[in-house]
């Protein structure tokens, strides 16, 4: 790992100022960033450690939404009675990320800011029509995920919380790559106030909505309807873990399993 300057601010305002001044990177749980720095894939000159900012933690119900602080760990989301009661599918997503040790450190904000093409949380955020709160604005999920490891965040912008509207029904199904346990394909299906939303992770360079499956499920919210949709393999990932055609097939299958699980 290359050397870096280290700062641990106590407030969001101080963290934003530190990022703006240094051009550095924000560190949440570090389950992706520390690994990337060890491999010298990331080489930030300054690390701004967010762990001292208490206001970034916590889970609360606000009206018809669950608001989760950006530094809340996967383990905390998975075991939260508020989340389990209102959006059990979201608790299940958190429980399925990585392994126990990763869930003890990894955070919601860190996961979506990183926007790994095979990460689980982006699918939940997109399918549930969540809103990402930052220090300067609120970004709807449809505008947040921009590309492979790319988001709408500015370099000195920090996610403070994510607000998840409580859906009528929702479920996530993941087909894990057997060694890494990352999603070869993961599909989150939700019946929301804004209609049926289906988000796919792992299959393409970044999380995206499966509009043809959404259309089919809007007519008939059944596992068969999802399974009958043929997903084109163009633009899907094609690598040693699975061909694009295989992933395309898995999208429909995982969507149908998610519909069945959503009930």
């Amino acid at each position: 790992m290359y050397a870096f300057e280290y700062q641990r601010p106590k407030s969001v305002a101080d963290a934003v100022a530190a990022l703006a001044k240094s051009g550095g990177k924000a560190l949440a749980g570090g389950q992706s960033l520390v690994g990337a720095m060890k491999l010298r894939l990331a080489n930030p000159g300054t690390i701004v450690d967010l762990s001292g900012i208490a206001e970034l933690r916590g889970i609360k119900k606000e009206g018809d939404a669950i608001v989760i602080g950006a530094l809340t760990t996967h383990a905390e989301v998975a075991s939260s009675s508020v989340v389990k009661q209102s959006i059990p599918a979201l608790a299940a997503v958190a429980e399925g990320i990585g392994d126990r040790q990763v869930r003890n450190r990894g955070t919601l904000g860190g996961s979506i800011a990183n926007n790994d093409p095979a990460a689980d949380y982006p699918a939940a955020v997109l399918a549930l029509g969540a809103t990402v709160h930052t220090n300067k604005r609120k970004i709807i999920a449809d505008d947040f995920f921009k590309g492979m490891y790319e988001t709408a965040l500015a370099a000195d912008e920090i996610i403070t919380a994510v607000s998840f509207p409580v859906p009528k029904k929702a479920a996530y199904m993941k087909f894990p790559q057997p060694a890494s346990r990352f999603a070869l394909v993961g599909v989150f299906v939700a019946q929301t106030g804004g209609g049926t939303r289906v988000a796919v992770t792992g299959a393409a360079p970044h999380v995206h909505r499966a509009s043809t499956i959404e259309a089919a499920l809007s007519k008939s919210f059944t596992a068969d309807a999802a399974k009958a949709v043929k997903i084109p393999a163009d633009h899907l990932n094609n690598d040693i873990h699975g061909s694009a055609a295989y992933r395309a097939h898995l999208v429909s299958v995982m969507a149908s399993r998610a519909v069945a699980a959503a009930g």
Binding site: R8, L27, V34, G35, D49, R105
Partner: peptide, 12 residues
């Protein structure tokens, strides 16, 4: 809490 000590900085 169980944590992987190879993926956390000492300062964290």
């Amino acid at each position: 809490n169980a944590v992987k000590a190879c993926t956390i900085l000492a300062v964290q």
